[in-house]
Design a protein around this nucleic acid. Sequence first.
DNA 1: CATTCATGAAAATAAATTTCTCCTCTGCGT
DNA 2: ACGCAGAGGAGAAATTTATTTTCATGAATG
Lengths: 287, 287
Amino acid sequence: MDLFHALSDEDGKLSALEKKLAHLVLENVDFVVNSSIIDLAGRAGVSPPTVTRFCRRLGCQSFSDFKMQLARMTYVGLRYLKPEVPTATPAEVAEDIVTKAQNALFQLHRQLDLKALDEAAHLLRGADFIQAFGASGNSAMIVNELHNRLFRLGCRINASNDHNMNLMLSAAAQAGTVVFGSSFTGRDLGLVRCLDLLRQRAIPTIVITQSNSPVAAAADVLIAIDMPEGKNIFRPTSTRFAYLGAIDILANLVAYADRNKALKALRGIKEELVRHRDGDDRQLLGD
Amino acid sequence: MDLFHALSDEDGKLSALEKKLAHLVLENVDFVVNSSIIDLAGRAGVSPPTVTRFCRRLGCQSFSDFKMQLARMTYVGLRYLKPEVPTATPAEVAEDIVTKAQNALFQLHRQLDLKALDEAAHLLRGADFIQAFGASGNSAMIVNELHNRLFRLGCRINASNDHNMNLMLSAAAQAGTVVFGSSFTGRDLGLVRCLDLLRQRAIPTIVITQSNSPVAAAADVLIAIDMPEGKNIFRPTSTRFAYLGAIDILANLVAYADRNKALKALRGIKEELVRHRDGDDRQLLGD
DNA sequence: CATTCATGAAAATAAATTTCTCCTCTGCGT
DNA sequence: ACGCAGAGGAGAAATTTATTTTCATGAATG
């Protein structure tokens, strides 16, 4: 399914002409998607059968299958292979940001470890109390969001963004507590210190962070988010969307782990909001 | 270009068989995208020429053009026409949330008012001081994010989520201040009160909210985010992605409105972080 | 020198569109 | 009410176009 990877030919499995084709395709996705095999062959200076073989080698069933897969990726997946151009007009900025956010979500979906998420959800659902630790702007947002999602589901949860505080909270954590940590870089040493302490004290920990990082190593359950960084395409900005998506999935799984509890809590909040505001129940649960 | 709209046949321009086709397509996008005109015609119980005519009427050049356009939309745009099914497995939950988040971003991109965003960006860039008002979980996150994005660009900004506080801050606002408000519902009456007060005092205001809402009416610049609500498909959860995307675009436009200032501020933050942490500059600006 | 692999020409197949014809419905005049 | 012209929808068959297969050739490798 990974056309994407295949086209960049990291394994060097393509022949010379096929490389040429791959290059042409990556540079002119729009053209390829809207042209026939004859046009493409003509433009690449090869024969149609070569194109067919190229598609097969890429793992597609046929040329049209290839075009389809390509078309499906263009919106979300392929653009980042192009060199980054300095965007200027508002329209370009908007397109760039939306595309990258969608890419981040796309990547999230591809690399999601559902087992880890499910395990995390059950841990959280079973906890008497949850501590959520983040730091700096991005992780702070993530743990606040976790707080915002989970308290609605009847979880007892506290979010904290202060390293010293986190350390004290870790030291004071009682059995039944589960700690959730977020670090985009995986190098938040303050968080690592907390996790080490918690492990000694047999308090279960869950982190959302980069795999192969100190934070990842120090936790019990890892929700890995690895966005390509080498090409500096996914700036922290768009990575946030992946984290946020992961939090939403996690929260949803927590809700489903005990639907009745979640429903009861949600209903209570909703009623209170409606009573408190002007009876307009079109309002969301939390503006 | 709007296949989407055409397929739902709101103008009633399709004939009986074409309606049948449209229906089939919406229900079985994956099938259609991967089948030939003959398969599709067979399954719909019509002749191939009818399918060709159907595609033309929808504004496509040919059947393959139609398939391409469809393929490009499926990932992001079409799914929400399907009736909501109760999702159960982690994989389904993940797919559902990712899809909806991407839909929200897709919708955001479609309906974005770039002029308003650009105007907002210039107002913010020119402000001596920015107050950002939100309330409840979602808008609080949004204004915090705005704070998190803009302080890096050298803006003086304060985010506040407390209605009473907001009112006091509004009353105390001096010339040169610009106020930014967020409300997902557009019915945050506390925010409306602030905006009214600010208008009297000639302090410029920007809001991100639903159009045709009290909040929208009370502000000078409106960044409208209207997500379909009737079908209850976009839960607040996924709408957040659209808001967050809009904030990112806005922040980026603010940066571009005065690149030097933004660069200088960013560089300063980066240096400080690197010096302060273990010299590992792979770290993002804010974990 | 044999084998493998890449490639294209030509043939065969499959797909899509055009043309032509028929049918149905609608509106209008008798 | 009846019939008739015209418009538009639909499919059969023919045509065109696109794609794949088969087969032959030539280059590279061991």
